[in-house]
């Protein structure tokens, strides 16, 4: 804060407008009410009192995309639904964030091989910010995903748009220690590349 610091009474807090906006934004992420399959049940559990997503300021599930900042794609996306998912995404105001919840939305999940009508990952339809794998993910995992989104918001540079996409792993302020292979972006990239190679389906 430079020269402003310490010039006022103790009860006055100085901050940059950017930080203040980001703080407000991250503490009032409004997700869209939007469940497609079994993962939605777990998302509802996250909204209930036991896990209580309201502790993170994201409990106000909106029934319209126009009031929502966060789209939690919870469940199997099939081709018939994909165009609707994209339309809902387009209707959300910027800045908007997407959590792909569950194995299905991360990459087809149990329907990868024989699901003739399942989109093999919702990232083929809308850009995804955070992937929460699991079938279904534990509620804690979704909360963690939400916290990653909040990290992303905290790092936002512009007041209006443009999320920082050059940081592959959002740097966290605490709470969770990243494993050594993910501790810096270069290592994380290598790790992701290796995983991708391991996961390539065998030919034939």
């Amino acid at each position: 804060m430079g020269w402003l610091e310490g010039r006022f009474e103790e009860s006055v807090i100085t901050t940059s407008l950017e930080q203040a906006m980001n703080w407000a934004r991250e503490s009032s992420m409004w997700p869209m009410t939007f469940g497609l399959a079994c993962c939605a049940i777990e998302m509802m559990a996250v909204g209930c009192s036991r896990f209580d997503i309201d502790r993170f300021g994201a409990g106000a599930f909106r029934a319209t995309p126009r009031q929502a900042d966060l789209m939690i794609v919870a469940g199997t996306v099939n081709f018939k639904m994909a165009s609707r998912v994209r339309r809902l995404y387009n209707q959300m105001p910027d800045p908007k964030f997407v959590i792909a919840m569950g194995a299905c939305t991360c990459g087809g999940g149990p329907y990868y091989k024989y699901g003739y009508n399942v989109v093999k990952g919702v990232d083929l339809v809308v850009p995804v910010d955070v992937y929460v794998p699991g079938c279904p993910p534990r509620p804690e995992a979704l909360l963690e995903g939400l916290m990653r989104i909040q990290d992303k918001v905290r790092g936002m540079k512009d007041l209006t748009k443009e999320q920082p996409i050059d940081v592959p792993i959002p740097s966290r302020s605490g709470y969770v220690l990243l494993p050594p292979e993910l501790s810096d972006p270069v290592k994380a990239d290598a790790f992701a590349k290796k995983n991708k190679e391991l996961a390539t389906p065998a030919k034939g």
Partner: peptide, 19 residues
């Protein structure tokens, strides 16, 4: 008709990759 045994999965559907 997908439950026919000789059904071929679509390569893409309205611009979304299918396989």
């Amino acid at each position: 008709h997908p439950l026919r045994k000789d059904y071929e999965f679509p390569l893409e559907y309205h611009g979304i990759r299918g396989r």
